[in-house]
Write a protein that binds this DNA or RNA. Sequence first.
DNA 1: CCTGGAGTTGTCCTA
DNA 2: TTAGGACAACTCCAG
Length: 480
Amino acid sequence: MKSISIHWFRQDLRLSDNPALSDAAENGKILPIYILDDVNSGEHKIGAASRWWLHHSLCELNKSLLGKLVVFSGDPMELLPQLANELSANLVTWNRAYEPWRIKRDTKVKASLEREGITVRSFNGSVLWEPWEVRKNDGTPYRVFTPFYRRGCLSAEPPRRPNKITDSLDLYEAKNLKNGYDSIAKLGLLSKNNWINGLENTWKVGETAAKKQLLNFLDNGLNGYKDGRNFPAKCNVSRLSPHLHWGEISPNLVWHAVKDRLSSSLVGDDDCDHFLSELGWREFSVSLLYTFPELPRKNLQPRFDNFSWKTNEVLLKAWKSGQTGYPIVDAGMRELRKTGYMHNRLRMIVGSFLVKNLRLHWHHGESWFWDCLVDADLASNSSGWQWIAGCGADAAPYFRIFNPIKQGEKFDPSGSYIRRYVPEISRLPNTYLCSPWLAPEKVLKESDVNLGVNYPKPVVDVKVSRDEALAAFSALREQK
DNA sequence: CCTGGAGTTGTCCTA
DNA sequence: TTAGGACAACTCCAG
């Protein structure tokens, strides 16, 4: 009788270039499982939009596995040893995860399996460089991106080439275990939220879709990426973030696909290098979270603990619902709510607005994004918010405050992004599209805009709030 | 050991 | 109209 191994799928919902799955395949029969773990995740329980994604991704994975994926909900600490004993499995494999709570959990799971005499092997399936390997010469972690990436990553061993897809998986038929679509549905990942339709109309989920999106990006987005990535109405960004987060595609596959284009000289070197460095930012975030497990909650720069944040439910609600009266901000926030995604340029604009103009704590932004993003990732989300708030590693300088009017005019010059998400002002001419309150009464009337009625007046004065923020940030310096 | 230069993403004022 | 400097402090690294 062939030996049986369990492959525990987590953030590696794919068959190709999956090191842990390949390892299990060499051992014999495989029982592929997924465990929804809301027990150990604590305050980082998967958010609503991400649950939607996860549901569909599991369905796709199950299809690829011919309906033989077995899913559970509960504590892997209890489930895995039990299951392994029941099947007399001799091996459990998984690809490593890097969030602090997962590391803690996996360490315990591994120990308890090994106590039962079961072999556990874990692999790198999610990052290009292991976070503990990227270190300065003195052994300490980097706190600045450029040396981290150039010296720490680029001058190290290059990322491995993706493995070929394992052609035949010998899947274990677990007759007494429930599998298939019904059991995925029973995880209850889908909520009745009204934005689910928007998600369905925006995304194709799963490994096949991820590969297709990569090709689409290579053919249509990569050329001109360096500049085009700043314009939300253009199609230069990859939109791979949710696929990468859930491991529907490996970063190695993406990395080498872009590298190959680079050597084919079909696209500009600058464009390729710039995109690769964005993958570098993903690595930097993972590394930061690995090194500073408190990153999601604690300011990396402790002097920010005394910052004079405001408390204002009305302003927070206006921000969340895309009703600030600043069209570019509202467009971004509505894109998020509608599609579970926000263009990178907009993440900076709305982040700067929340933290600097409204002066509300970055935690509010972080947790709203966590719930709304299909690509919500603990490392990227918390390091991103700390960056924009100025309290993180290699953070934005305090005086870098985005002006929502200028940013709109500069990066959405045709106004098509704003018009798509803020239709009630779509008839305003470009001159006033980013600042409707400056439009003459006559123009407003002709455009069917009634400020304060069908579109809000600005919730704060951008000039006044900027000055106040600068003062607040200066106070922080003096006090130190 | 010291020293100097450089560092994702901006804005405003002045000349 | 446009270009340049100010707006900090700190981290990293090469020389």
